[in-house]
């Protein structure tokens, strides 16, 4: 399996209006994916609204799960 490289070069700022869209590159294989987002710094807020992922379906994985 590959690894995520989410700290790859910036893809740019998209969107407009109320929301700001932050883009990142991903490159990793998976069957199941769990997401978490958090803000733990004093005096700092967070309000993410939605996440867009671009997913390549590679095919049936007949290998035993790791």
């Amino acid at each position: 399996m590959g690894t995520f490289t989410l700290n790859d070069p910036i893809l740019g700022v998209l969107g407009g209006g109320q929301f700001t869209t932050r883009a990142f590159r991903m490159n990793g294989e998976f069957r199941d994916l769990q997401l978490r987002w958090y803000q733990s710094v004093a005096s700092q807020d967070m309000e993410p609204h939605y996440l867009e992922l671009f997913i390549d379906v590679l095919g049936v994985d007949e290998s035993l799960p790791s």
Partner: peptide, 11 residues
Amino acid sequence: MKKNAHAGFWS
């Protein structure tokens, strides 16, 4: 199905 994520966008 094995999948591969290429890019993500947080709004």
